[in-house]
Design a protein around this nucleic acid. Sequence first.
DNA 1: TGTACATCAGTGAACGCGCGTTCACTGATGTAC
DNA 2: TGTACATCAGTGAACGCGCGTTCACTGATGTAC
Lengths: 178, 178
Amino acid sequence: MTTRREQKQESRAAIITAASKLFRERGVDNVSVAEVMDAAGMTHGGFPRHFASKLDLVGEALRRAADETGGSAASPVPFEEFAATYLSAAHRDHPGTGCVFAALGPEVSRGPAETRHVLADKIERQIAEFGDTPQQRAEAISRWATLIGTLILARLAEPDALSDEIIAAGRRAVGLAD
Amino acid sequence: MTTRREQKQESRAAIITAASKLFRERGVDNVSVAEVMDAAGMTHGGFPRHFASKLDLVGEALRRAADETGGSAASPVPFEEFAATYLSAAHRDHPGTGCVFAALGPEVSRGPAETRHVLADKIERQIAEFGDTPQQRAEAISRWATLIGTLILARLAEPDALSDEIIAAGRRAVGLAD
DNA sequence: TGTACATCAGTGAACGCGCGTTCACTGATGTAC
DNA sequence: TGTACATCAGTGAACGCGCGTTCACTGATGTAC
């Protein structure tokens, strides 16, 4: 038996899940609160029971999206596996379930501090896991940057063959076999 | 003596210049036509004499921004010089005059085909200049991607020391001395 | 256990506001003769 | 060269429309006794 409190938490989680996907697919500014609520199976009038504002929701949605990436600190995904999934046609073609930095990085960096901090925190935690020596960190940072930049170029490029060539170039650069 | 036709072309150029800067600084959706026209020294009512729609202006502004990058095909900037300028605190802190891919890549890739093609064309032309062999192209593509990804992470990261570390890591990765 | 009342998640309608677009107007430039 | 008319870049005001937000209301859940 689910209590009223639990049901509310489930609704809240459904809203965040829907927002996290829609924002990455279409951009924060191009998704209305009404669309998010609809995707979560509700009407938009219920929104303020869960969030103080759209900005508040954006923060939670970014946190969710950021936390989906790279496994947990307890069980990190090996880099090769991570990169092979990251630089793939599937990831390129499905931003809604993909990397939040490649999907929303620039617009979040221009936005309010409140939401920028969410991604800044993720970057800080991620880099902290990269290693202790400056060399380890530097190498891991630049590999990560290569993944992000490659995906962004691949999503823009036309025709498909060029986009595929970009992904292949990225895979080579981070040490994956073809 | 400037003719009326020349004056109009100058106005048009001023609008595109202002838009190109403002869009990169704050995002296409967060800059109104009125703001662009104001920055160009006019009121917004004159806008339709120059552009069929905001989308039309966005296309021109992206083309302008893309063409500013990397020198001309006739006199390309050497990679080391390009990268040293690209991965700098100045570029990180002034997106309005910087790389259009790092500033607007993701949102343009989600947008209408009309504007996406502008950046896709630039990517195609740029990669064509990278060389003839697949190896040359692949290496140049991945270096370019590293620049873009590094700048995006550096613009998001906090505190400043971490952002600087990210830039330094990118510089090392593309072969620049510290 | 039952009853009466309180709470509040979610509904549906309405509100301002900002933005892209449209348009009548003006006055300087350009053209025809 | 001069004059009368046409053009049209730019102005300023107004228009719809979509969006974030607000709010009275409802009815199921929760609480008090």
